[in-house]
Every structure is written in C-alpha cells, then in structure tokens.
Nucleic acid binder design. Structure first.
Lengths: 304, 304
DNA sequence: ACGCCTCGTGAAAGTAAGTTTCATCCGTGG
DNA sequence: CCACGGATGAAACTTACTTTCACGAGGCGT
C-alpha cells in the first residue's frame, strides 16, 4: 500500500507550531535543527532571513527550504508570514510557568502544579484545534455502523483504549479491548468488512499495536490510528489518522499530556457516535448509571 | 529626499493599520493607492509579493518601497510580516462554543469538538488553580516516605488509580492498585503506620472505595482522597483531601473532564515525588523506557 | 565482503524578489 | 519661456530565495 495518500493529509489549520512539533521526529537531523529554532521562538524566526536562519541552524539554505516543504509550506516567505501570524496570535505571557519545558530542579510544588496544568491544558486545546472534523466524522460514521469495534493500545495508551471500549460499551456498541497482544491478534483475525479497528499509540511506533492493526486491515476492517506523530509507522496501516498535539517535552510530562489529549479525542468520537442516536444512547447510559447506584453512598452533605 | 521628518520610525504602537490610515493623507497619490489596498485587507497584502502589490495599486515597486519607508518600515518584507501579525491578532475569539453546557442536539462534529475540548481544558486549569500546594506537599511527603502505597478506585476512577500506580512503580516506589474490592480490602488490612492509601472517586460516594479507605485508616495508614466534591462522604475517611474541579455537566461529558482533572492531579503528585530524588527517578524512568524499546518499530518516516 | 542504491546534505548555479538609481514628466513660479 | 522640485516608473542592481547537482554515508541485496 506504499505511500498511502491518507485521508486527513493536508488539513493543518490551527497551530502551525503544533503541527511542526508533531512532525519533528519525521524530519531529517538538519531539518530538525531548523524546526527546533522555529518552535522555540516563532516570532524571532519570522524576522530572520533564510540565510540567517540557515546559519543559526548550522545548515544550508537548501535545507531550510526543504524544511518549509516538509511542513507543508510553499516556500520560505510563506513560512515567515505564517510564523509571524502565529506568534502574534498567542496572547499569553507565560511568565514563570515553564512552557513545554522540563521542571526546573529547585521548583516548589506550586510551580510544578502550574507548569503541568498549563501544558496539559494546552495539549487538550491544541489537539482540538488541529483535529480534522471531516476525518472525525468519517470515523464516527464507521464506528456507528460497525458490526464490532476492536480497540488496541499498549502500556499507557492501553488505558485510553480501555476507556474507549468502556464508553462505547455503555452506549450499546459492541466494542472490545485486549490487554494481551496474542488475544488481540486473534480477535483482529476475526474482523471483517464493516468492522472497525482502532489503534492507539502515542509514538506511533509500538510494533504490537501496528501489527494488530495491520492484521485487522487485511481482514477488511476499517482501521483508525490515534497518535501524536502524523508520519509515524502506524499511519501506514490506518485508513484514518487522528493526531493529538502534545508537544514533545520530556518523557515524563509528555506522557500525561498526551494521555489527556488522547482521552479528549476519544471523548469527541464517543459523543459523536452517541449523538447519532441520542435517545437510545441516553437510555443506555442511564441504565448503566443505575446499575452502579447501589454502590453509591448517600448524597453529598449540604453545608457543614 | 531630505524631506519630511516622518513619524519617527521604530516605535509606533499596536495598530499598524490605524497608523497607516492615520497618515494616509500625508502620502503621495501613488502611495495612497498602495495604502488603501493594505488597509482594506492586510492579510491579503501580506501574502502578495511586492511586484504583485505594485501592479494591483497601478504603480511601480519603487513606490511601494517608498510607502514602506513612509510608514516607518525598513522595507517590504518587514511590512509584510507586521501585516501578517496584525491580521492574525484581529481574529475573533472563540465563536459559539457552548461553555460548560450540554451539547445541543443539532450540533455538528466541529462544535462538539470545540465544546468538549473547551470544557476539558477548563477542568484541568481550574483544578490546578484550586489545588492547595500545602496539602499536596504533605501528600507528596507522605508518599515519598511511605513503606508502601495502596491506590483504590472503581470504574472510571480505576483507570486513574491504575495510572498512578504505574507511575509510582516506574520511579521505584512500592505501589499497588486492585481492581477487585475484596483484594483491596485484604490489602488495606495489611497496611500500617507509615503507609499511604489513596482513594479516588469522582463523586466521592463510591462505597467500595470509601470502605477500603476506612479500613486503611483504622490500620494507621495515611489516607488521601481525590474527589470532585469536597463535602462528599469519602472526605470523612481521609486525612488529606484533594479535589478536582470538573464542572458538573451531564454524566457523559463530566466523566471525561473529571478524569482529565484527576490525571492532572495525579501527575502533579507524581512529579512532586519524583522531584524529591531527581537522579534516581530519572534513572528508573530511563530504565523502564529502555525496556519497551524492542517493541518500537523504526523511526518516523521522512517526507511523504 | 562487495557494489549498488537511496537518502541527506551543502555548494553553486539560477531565478525571482526587493532596492536603488536615475531620467522623465509635470506643474509652479520667476 | 525657462529653471526648479517633487512625484513617478524603467531599469540597473543587490539581495533573497530556489533549484540543481554531486558527493558521501549508511543500508540492502547479491
């Protein structure tokens, strides 16, 4: 299936910066140096001439142009303008909060909280901005009409997969999640036309998930990938690609931010599916809510 | 050209457009034509090349340059960038996202996405705002020094509990999570002074979790509750109460927003604990990351 | 191991964009 | 009627941007 044209391809509205950091890992080393400069200070980059930027990134002008093309721009001037626009739009003076960065060693808890919350909230917002409604619509459509939905995810993404499974289950859709690769493979082999397989992987490089998704695809199921990196291997085996927009920070913080972003996307899909048949979904939800009622202890206290 | 002193270049505040239309009458006829085009549609002008703009204004490039100088810019590229920035800034803030409300029946997916993301992001931000650093500090302290940490949560909160467990485990803390109430009760009975028990429940009324937390407390463990409702029953059995701030919307959307908020709090605690011993935590994290490396497939693709 | 191929890269050639120079034009006042 | 000065565009010029090409490193099949 070679260089699949992909469905969501060119759509890159909201954050150019986000978009760039998303495909950062798919860029060549020299281009990455350029990308990092750009992401670090878009406004400054917009002011520089191409030669200037190339020098700063310790590379040639040619590479800068290649970088422009890689991120979907026609040329350097276009990039410059978009960059200027982006930079102007972001209103926030993030003062003390360390944007996208690591937590400074001496930080006190208040700082830590502020930093984490800021990055987490950003990941959610930016993910929503760059999410392509058209692609989502198609995925929702597929899920709503699927005979059965398999959801795959390993490690941290496994939680999200499981969450999605549970959500769909609660509105009466037949959905499965398998913590175990072998079981998942078996299940995938049983999928067919009209079924849907969703693979979740932050990096998009988790071989287990890719493998299972591929299996599902060869069986004729519609495959959906949810990843942070639009050019990662998992996108090769997916009919639809949905991306999150957690900026790559360190492994630690990035992990949670990306999880939140994934959950947000999942929630959007879920609500989209539920909205297709409001009354039935609502009824199903109420039924399941009732089911756990006996495990609830008397209401919250009024006043103290 | 030792002519008019012009408006002192470099510093001219926010409104470049305003500035230009202000000195419009002082410009020569040909320059005025240029100015009018620019003022009429700054964004479009920013996209044009100098030759293009000159043609559109029925004049020569030279005049456009003169115009640039007249309004205090160094040259055309500078003008372009400023223009792009200006145009971007005057972008209307979020249109009709239904704040905190339910999704309207006829909503299309784009609206749904915007609404969900907005509420999710808000939940995270507001949770962080109302989180008490002092309480967190004490909880972190307790966890960092605990002999062992038990984490309880049922249903959706179970995912969060599990996530927390995994996080702590990854930095070498001894932590447990039990999907099953009975096992959890057994475990709680084995806790003692110096141990920590964390109970997670969005509503704060989940009897299973409360019960287990109570058990843990009677055994002398430090008990921590994470809930959205500061007056809910679970707070009665907790030494420390941490609250999330997901606005109560409907059951459906509230569920995810509160999950995100919970995850954020958990992440804060986690980072707080990890920060207590950076080098060791970092080493542990790197080791665990390496462990899954063999399950990663080759890097992201270059180019499309 | 060998050679082949692909890919990333920068040097340099080529093209287009932006800037300067300068001659012309036109109205004005001597 | 002629000098004068400002406005203007053509063209020369410079700089910025883009393309082409050849080299070298790393991977892959024979």
């Amino acid at each position: 299936m070679a260089k699949s044209p992909k469905i969501s391809a060119s759509h890159e509205p909201g954050g150019l910066i986000v978009h760039i950091s998303g495909l950062l890992p798919s860029l060549s080393p020299a281009e990455q140096r350029v990308a990092r400069l750009v992401v670090a200070d878009p406004a400054a980059a917009a002011r520089r001439t191409i030669t200037d930027l190339a020098t700063a990134a310790e590379t040639s002008e040619a590479t800068v142009i290649r970088f422009c093309r890689s991120v979907g721009m026609d040329g350097y001037p276009q990039l410059r303008i978009r960059l200027a626009a982006e930079a102007a739009r972001r209103v926030e003076p993030p003062d003390a909060r360390v944007v996208g960065g690591d937590i400074p060693p001496g930080a006190d808890l208040a700082q830590i909280i502020a930093t984490i919350a800021f990055n987490d909230a950003r990941a959610v917002e930016e993910t929503a901005e760059q999410l392509d409604p058209a692609t989502c619509e198609q995925v929702v459509e597929a899920i709503a009409n699927a005979g059965r939905i398999d959801i795959y995810g390993a490690g941290a993404s496994g939680f999200v997969a499981s969450d999605f499974q549970q959500k769909l289950h609660r509105i009466g859709r037949i959905a499965f999640y398998f913590p175990d690769v072998h079981t998942a493979l078996t299940s995938a082999a049983l999928l067919g036309r009209g079924d849907v397989a969703v693979g979740i992987s932050h990096t998009g490089t988790t071989s287990d998930v890719i493998e299972v998704l591929e299996q599902a695809r060869t069986r004729g199921a519609v495959t959906v990938a949810l990843t942070n990196f639009p050019r990662s291997p998992i996108t090769d085996v997916a009919d639809f690609v949905l991306t999150t927009a957690a900026r790559e920070t360190t492994y630690r913080s990035g992990a949670t931010a990306s999880r939140l972003a994934q959950l947000t996307v999942v929630d959007c899909l879920f609500v989209g599916v539920a909205a297709r048949n409001r009354s039935r979904a609502r009824k199903a939800l109420e039924a399941t809510a009732e089911a756990v009622l006996s495990h609830r202890v008397g209401a919250n206290r009024r006043r103290g």
